[in-house]
Design a protein around this nucleic acid. Structure first.
Lengths: 148, 148
DNA sequence: TTGCTCCTCACGTCACGTGAGGTGGC
DNA sequence: TTGCTCCTCACGTCACGTGAGGTGGC
C-alpha cells in the first residue's frame, strides 16, 4: 500500500534520471500507471519493476531499446497466457504455440547470458594472472590464496 | 610475418566498422602503425590486439571510450614499467609506486567484473526458473537435466 | 583506363543530458 | 505568496552509421 510515486521519487529509487523515464515512455516502453488531474506522472510498484527490468537488459546484456521492447513484449505475452490459463480462454493449440514461442525466446536469451558470463570469466582470469605477475614484480608473496 | 593490413581487412578481422577504427584514432585510442605514401592506414597485429581490447571493455564491461582510455593508459604504463625492469632505468621507489597503482587499477576492475558476473548469474537463474515454469504449463517433463 | 579500396568532410541517429520557460499542489 | 516538484519543447553529446565527392595503387 505504498501508493503511487512522483517521477522524482521513482527516478531516485530506480537510480535513473527523470529524463530517461520520460524517454522510455515516449518510445512506448512504459506508461506510468496514472496521471494527476494536473498532468503529473504517477508510478506504481509494478512500473518500477518494469523499469528495473529495462535497466537490467540494458546494462548487463547491452541490449538497445528496440531489443528490450521485443523482450518485454515476449514477457508480456507469456504473462497473458498465464492469465488465460486460469480463465481457460484460449484454445489449447493456440496456447501451445504461445508457450513454445515464449520458451524459445527465453532459451535464446539464456544462451546469450551464458556467453557473456563465459567472456567475463575469461576477463577475470586474465586479470588474476596480471595481478599475480604484478605481485611477482613487487617481490612479494600473493596475499590472497585462490583455491579451486 | 603477416605484414600490415589495410583498414578493410583489419575491420573485417576485428568485426568492427572502418568508421569505428577511424573514430578510435580520432579520439586518440589507437594509431595505426603506419601509413602508405598515399595516406592509407596500415594496421599491425598489435594494433588489432589493442582494438580487440577496446571492444572487450566496451561490450562486456559497458565502459565508455573515456573509461577505456584510462584503462588502456594504465595498461600501457604497466608495460612500460615491465620494459624498464629489464633496463633497470627507474629508481626502485618510483617503480614501486607505479606497480602499486597498476595493481589497484586491476583490482578495482576485477571487482567490477565479479559484480557483473554475479548479476548475470542471477539473470540466468531467473531464466532457468521461467523456463521450468513454461515446461510445467506445457504439461511436459523438462528435457534437460541440470545437475549442480 | 577500369575496378576496387581508401580518403576526408559532414549530416543523421540513438539514448539520453541539460537548460529554458511555464504550470501545480502543499 | 513562496518553494519545490513537475511539465513540455528543444538543442547538445557520445559513438558511431551513412552517403558525397575525390584520390591511390594493382
Amino acid at each position: 500500500v505504498t501508493g503511487l510515486l512522483g517521477i522524482g521519487e521513482a527516478a531516485a529509487r530506480l537510480g535513473v534520471s527523470e529524463r530517461a523515464l520520460r524517454y522510455y515512455q515516449q518510445i512506448g516502453l512504459i506508461t506510468p500507471s496514472g496521471r494527476t488531474p494536473g498532468g503529473l506522472r504517477r508510478y506504481s510498484e509494478d512500473d518500477l519493476v518494469r523499469v528495473n527490468r529495462i535497466r537490467e537488459l540494458q546494462t548487463l546484456l547491452g541490449f538497445n531499446l528496440d531489443e528490450i521492447r521485443d523482450q518485454l513484449e515476449s514477457e508480456d505475452r507469456l504473462a497473458a497466457v498465464r492469465a488465460e490459463y486460469q480463465a481457460e480462454t484460449t484454445d489449447p493449440i493456440r496456447r501451445r504455440e504461445l508457450l513454445a514461442e515464449a520458451l524459445s525466446v527465453r532459451e535464446e536469451l539464456r544462451a546469450t547470458v551464458e556467453a557473456k558470463i563465459a567472456g567475463l570469466e575469461r576477463v577475470r582470469d586474465d586479470l588474476d594472472a596480471a595481478i599475480a605477475r604484478i605481485y611477482e614484480l613487487m617481490g612479494e608473496p600473493q596475499p590472497l590464496s585462490a583455491g579451486p
